[in-house]
Structures are given as structure tokens and as C-alpha cells.
């Protein structure tokens, strides 16, 4: 077998080979100095793979978190908003519930709901329905949450009326609000991570501040000739430079062209290449640009 061509090598790395072709490649590389060196070199370029890909893999749950939180919110809202048939608590059911208040102290708090069911037939129409909905909501929540939440919703002193009220109104909106906040928080986190990753990928590395928000999405490349200087460029003639790791200085560029690459030598000297291939060079920190 001849030495590996670039696509075969890449396909091997990407898991795109199988069968005899795969065995041939393995067998060849095991005894070929050049191909072993190729494998090593390709491995060393792993830093070129956008950090977002492995990050995405390790944060796979974030992709599920938002829809899961939305689903949990929907269930919580469904629980929180009583249906018309259950909203109207009849006097008889209220009376029955009040009857339960008369004998709460004799039973342990945790046993109150279970014991209340057989003793208050009129309340069954309302209370079991709400409890079932609460249970279904609890079942829909993440596994770690239900036990403590249900425990928290247990009647504090055997007051079933209060229990029904609490279950039908207070906890569910709270849970819904928490879900909404969590979803918003995670959405924001995802957004921040993506922006940070994108910036780190396209520019000088992770140790620089994010560019101004109005140009952050425009950035296409960057160059850090030293630890103290970073130039970044982007679409529509966007050029910025930072020399203090804190702020970005906007550099005027002679054309509103999309810029693709920058190679900086220091804080004063940089060469910028536009997508059409034209190059611009400055040696005075961007005050003037010349086309070589």
C-alpha cells in the first residue's frame, strides 16, 4: 500500500474507514515512518478544531436543558392554572374540608392526605384531582427535585384546606417561575459560552476580553504577536487592537471590505488581508494603511 493521501488520513481520523481499507491503513502506518509522522502532525492540529465541538459534547445536557425546562414549565403552569371544573370549590366540599380541620391533631402530618380521602367523600372530587395533577407534575420534574418538593408541600399541621390551596396555587407558580428563570439563565449561559468560544476561536485566544457587542459577531480572525498585543479584524473593515487586555481600540480602515486575515508583528505593525485577496499594511498603529 502507498502512503496515505490526505483524505484517507482524514477519513481514518474521522472514523470514515471500515473493512479491508481500514486494516490496510492500520497495517501500513504501523511500519511507515512518514505516515506515523503524518498521524502525529494531524494529532497536533487538534487545537485547530473549534473548541465549541468538544465543549458541545461535554455540555450536551445544555442542549436538552432549555426544552426540558420549557416542558417542566408547561406542566407546572398546567398544574398552577386550575381548570374551570376544579376552580369552583363547592360549599359542600369546603364544608367537608373544614370537617377535616376538626380532627387533624390526632394524625401525623405526613399521613393526613391519605387518611383524609376516605373520610371526606365530597372532597374527593376536588382534592384527588389536584393531587393527581400535582403528582403528575412532580413526576414530570427532574428526578432530584420531586421528593423534597412533595415533602415541602405536605400539610404542615394537617390542615387539608390549606393544603389544597397551597398545592393548587403557591408552589406551582413558584416552580414555574423557577423553571422560567432557570431556562433564561441557561439560555444566557449558552449564549455567553458560544460568544466566548467563537471569540476565542477566531481571535487571539481565551485570555483577551470580548470585543464590543456591536462588532462581536463580525470578527473573523485575530493575531497576537505577543502576550501584550492582540489585533482582531472582521467584516466591513472592522479592525480593533488591544494592548492592555482590558479594552479594544477601534482602528480606522480605509475600506468597508470584509477582512479575512491579519498578521501582526507588534502594536504598530500589522498586515490585513481582505476576502478579495487585497492586503493592507500599517506600521503606525493603524493611522495610515498602504497596499504593498
Amino acid at each position: 500500500m502507498n502512503c496515505l493521501d490526505a483524505e484517507t488520513l482524514a477519513a481514518w481520523f474521522d472514523g470514515g474507514l471500515s473493512g479491508a481499507a481500514l486494516e490496510d491503513v492500520r497495517s501500513h502506518v504501523a511500519g511507515c515512518a512518514r505516515c506515523q509522522a503524518l498521524v502525529g502532525a494531524l494529532g497536533r492540529t487538534r487545537a485547530a478544531v473549534p473548541a465549541a465541538q468538544p465543549e458541545r459534547a461535554s455540555r450536551w445536557w445544555l442542549a436538552w436543558a432549555v426544552p426540558a425546562a420549557a416542558a417542566a414549565t408547561a406542566v407546572a403552569v398546567w398544574v398552577a392554572v386550575p381548570r374551570p371544573t376544579n376552580d369552583a370549590v363547592t360549599p359542600s366540599s369546603t364544608a367537608s374540608l373544614q370537617k377535616q380541620e376538626a380532627q387533624p391533631q390526632s394524625t401525623p402530618p405526613s399521613a393526613a392526605p391519605a387518611e383524609a380521602k376516605p373520610a371526606a367523600p365530597p372532597a374527593r372530587a376536588a382534592a384527588p384531582t389536584l393531587q393527581d395533577r400535582a403528582r403528575s407534575a412532580a413526576a414530570a420534574r427532574p428526578p432530584a427535585a420531586p421528593a423534597s418538593e412533595i415533602d415541602a408541600e405536605k400539610p404542615a399541621a394537617g390542615n387539608l384546606n390549606e393544603t389544597v390551596t397551597v398545592r393548587s396555587a403557591a408552589p406551582a407558580p413558584t416552580a414555574a417561575a423557577e423553571r422560567r428563570q432557570e431556562a433564561a439563565r441557561q439560555g444566557a449561559v449558552v449564549g455567553q459560552l458560544q460568544a466566548r468560544d467563537a471569540f476565542a476561536i477566531t481571535s487571539c485566544g481565551p485570555n483577551w476580553p470580548a470585543p464590543p457587542s456591536d462588532v462581536a459577531a463580525q470578527i473573523t480572525s485575530g493575531s497576537a504577536p505577543s502576550d501584550a498585543v492582540c489585533w482582531i479584524i472582521g467584516r466591513a473593515g472592522t479592525v480593533l487592537r488591544s494592548t492592555d487586555h482590558q479594552t479594544w481600540q477601534r482602528i480606522a480602515f480605509p475600506q468597508m471590505t470584509d477582512l479575512a486575515a491579519v498578521q501582526a508583528s507588534d502594536a504598530s505593525t500589522a498586515t490585513v488581508t481582505a476576502v478579495d485577496g487585497s492586503s493592507f499594511r500599517t506600521s503606525d498603529g493603524g493611522a495610515t494603511w498602504v497596499q504593498p
Binding site: 482524514a10 477519513a11 492540529t45 478544531v49
Partner: peptide, 19 residues
């Protein structure tokens, strides 16, 4: 030819020339 991702192929082409 699409046997790998474009990104891996580009890295492989570069690695090949470098070596």
C-alpha cells in the same frame, strides 16, 4: 470527496505538507 469532514481534510493536507 466527503470521506472526512472538510476541517479534518484541511488539517490533513496541511499536516502532509508540513511533514
Amino acid at each position: 470527496h466527503g470521506r472526512s469532514s472538510l476541517a479534518t481534510w484541511l488539517r490533513a493536507v496541511l499536516a502532509q505538507r508540513h511533514i
